[in-house]
Design a protein around this nucleic acid. Structure first.
Length: 434
DNA sequence: TTTTGAGTTGTTCGA
DNA sequence: GTCGAACAACTCAAA
C-alpha cells in the first residue's frame, strides 16, 4: 500500500518560511513530501564544472534539509530527467497533487506546461502560485490593458497597487510534512561538479542594512549594496519581506525591487528580448566584435583601471558592484562596439546573482537598445566615473593593484572610441529609417 | 483623436 | 570652478 501524499516542488524558492506554494500544500490534509530536482538538461548546458550557482543551490539544500530533519521530515533530492523523476515518485507514492511556485522565464514556462500535461495523464493535479514577485505578468497593466514598457509609469502604478493591496507573509506551518528519516542529497561530484570558492552564508536583511542605501550604493569601495540579488534569485529570502523593509526604511531600494519586477514582466510579455533588441532598429548596429578585445575585456586587461578592476572582481568572486557593472557594460558596447549579447552571456556565466530578466534588461539598457534605455549618446567615461565614485582609487587598488603599470597600453583612446560609437549608432539608426 | 509632457544611473563644451 | 545647454529625435502614457 503506497502512502497518499502531496508533493511540494522547490525550484527558486529555497526556504520554508513565507513560501506561498509550500504553505498552500501544507494547508491540505495530506502529508507533503518536499522535493528538489537537479534537471540534467539544465546542468548539462553549464559551461564549467566549477559553478558557484550549483554550489550555492547545493548548500542551500543542505540548510533546508537540516530544518526539515528537525521537523521529522526530509527533502527528497533527485538528479536526472524531470518526467522520469516524477514517474519514479508516482511508483513510490500515491501522489495526489504537485504544488509549486510560478516561474516566468520562457524555458521554465515551457517545462511547467510539459510537466502539468504529463501529470494530468496520471491524474495528478499541478498547482502553481505567485510567490517570487509582488505583482506578476497581468497585474500591472496600462489602462488599455497592455503591458508597460517604460519604467516610471510602471513604477507609479505598481506603488499605487501596493497601497491598495493588503498583503501578509504566507503562514509558516510546522506540521503537515511527510514524516520520514533523512534522505541523502547527491554530492556535487555525483552531479558532475566541483566545490568552488563559494562560502555559503545565506544573505539576509539585517537591521539598519538599507537605511542609507541611497547614500552609499554608488561607491564600489564601500560595498554597501545589499547583495540580496542571489537570495532573491534562489528564494532563500522572501520578496515580501524585502518590500516590507524597503517601505519602512528606504525608498530607493524599493524602486530597485520594482525594477526587478519591471524586467520580469518585460521578459514575460516580450520574450524576443532574450536574443534580439527590444527596439529592433538597434539590430542594425554594425558591431566590431573583435575577439581579441573581447578577451582583454573578459580578463580585465583593457588598461582602463575601473573596467579592469570590475572584471577582476567578477572573475574572482562571481560578483561585481552595480555601479561598475554599468561602467564595464557601457565600455564593451560603446568603446569596443562589441555586441551586448556577448557581454550578457559572459555575465550569465559568471554572476552568482545572475537573473535572466535583469541581466538582459540591463545589458539592453547599457547598449541603448532596450525599453526605456539610456540614449545612445550617453557614453560613460571610465575616468569620470572613477573621479565621481572611486575618488581615492580604493576599489581599483583592491581588485587591480598593478593598474598603474598598464595605463600606457589602453585598448582604445576614450575620445576616439566615443566618436566611433556615436557614428556607428547614428549610421545604424539612419539605416533603420531609410 | 489629439495633444502634452516626460523619459534610471552621463559627458562635454562653452560661457 | 560652476552652470546650463546640447547631445536627437522618438515613443510612450495618459489626459
Amino acid at each position: 500500500m503506497k502512502d497518499k501524499i502531496n508533493i511540494f516542488w522547490f525550484r527558486r524558492d529555497l526556504r520554508l518560511e513565507d513560501n506561498v506554494g509550500l504553505s498552500k500544500a501544507l494547508a491540505q490534509d495530506i502529508p507533503v513530501v518536499p522535493i528538489f530536482l537537479f534537471d540534467q538538461e539544465i546542468l548539462s548546458k553549464l559551461p564549467n564544472t566549477k559553478d558557484i550557482r550549483v554550489d550555492y543551490i547545493h548548500q542551500a539544500l543542505q540548510s533546508l534539509q537540516g530544518k526539515l530533519e528537525e521537523l521529522g521530515s526530509s527533502l527528497h533530492v533527485y538528479h536526472g530527467n524531470v518526467e522520469e523523476i516524477f514517474e519514479l515518485l508516482i511508483q513510490k507514492f500515491d501522489v495526489q497533487a504537485v504544488f509549486c511556485n510560478r516561474d516566468y522565464e520562457p524555458l521554465a514556462i515551457a517545462r511547467d506546461n510539459r510537466v502539468q500535461k504529463w501529470l494530468a495523464k496520471e491524474d495528478v493535479t499541478f498547482s502553481a502560485f505567485k510567490d517570487q514577485v509582488i505583482f506578476e505578468k497581468g497585474e500591472i497593466l496600462k489602462n488599455d490593458g497592455t503591458p508597460y514598457t517604460v519604467y516610471t509609469p510602471y513604477a507609479k502604478k505598481w506603488r499605487a497597487a501596493l497601497e491598495r493591496k493588503h498583503y501578509t507573509a504566507a503562514p509558516s506551518t510546522l506540521d503537515g510534512y511527510y514524516q520520514t528519516k533523512k534522505k541523502s542529497i547527491p554530492s556535487l561530484k555525483t552531479l558532475g561538479f566541483e566545490k568552488t570558492v563559494l562560502n555559503y552564508e545565506t544573505p539576509s536583511l539585517t537591521p539598519g542594512m538599507i537605511d542609507d542605501y541611497d547614500q552609499h550604493r554608488d561607491f564600489p569601495a564601500e560595498d554597501r549594496t545589499t547583495r540580496l540579488g542571489v537570495a532573491l534569485r534562489f528564494g532563500t529570502i522572501s520578496v515580501r519581506e524585502c518590500v516590507k523593509t524597503a517601505l519602512k526604511n528606504n525608498d530607493t531600494w524599493l524602486s530597485e525591487l520594482i525594477w526587478r519586477e519591471f524586467f520580469m514582466q518585460i521578459l514575460f510579455h516580450f520574450p524576443h528580448v532574450v536574443d534580439t533588441s527590444f527596439k529592433s532598429s538597434y539590430d542594425n548596429i554594425r558591431w566590431r566584435n573583435n575577439e581579441k578585445e573581447f578577451e582583454k575585456w573578459r580578463k580585465g586587461e583593457t588598461g582602463y583601471p575601473i573596467v579592469d578592476a570590475g572584471m577582476r572582481q567578477l572573475n574572482e568572486t562571481g560578483f561585481m558592484h552595480n555601479r561598475v557593472r554599468m561602467v564595464v557594460a557601457s565600455f564593451l558596447c560603446k568603446h569596443l562596439l562589441i555586441d551586448w549579447r556577448w557581454g550578457e552571456a559572459y555575465f550569465a556565466e559568471k554572476l552568482l546573482d545572475y537573473e535572466l530578466s535583469s541581466n538582459n534588461g540591463n545589458w539592453q539598457w547599457a547598449a541603448g537598445c532596450g525599453c526605456d534605455a539610456a540614449p545612445y549618446f550617453r557614453i560613460f567615461n571610465p575616468d569620470a566615473q572613477t573621479k565621481r565614485f572611486d575618488k581615492d582609487l580604493k576599489y581599483i587598488k583592491r581588485w587591480n593593484p598593478h593598474y598603474a603599470d598598464r595605463l600606457e597600453t589602453a585598448i582604445v583612446d576614450h575620445k576616439q572610441a566615443r566618436e566611433r560609437a556615436l557614428n556607428t549608432y547614428k549610421e545604424a539608426l539612419n539605416d533603420a529609417r531609410s
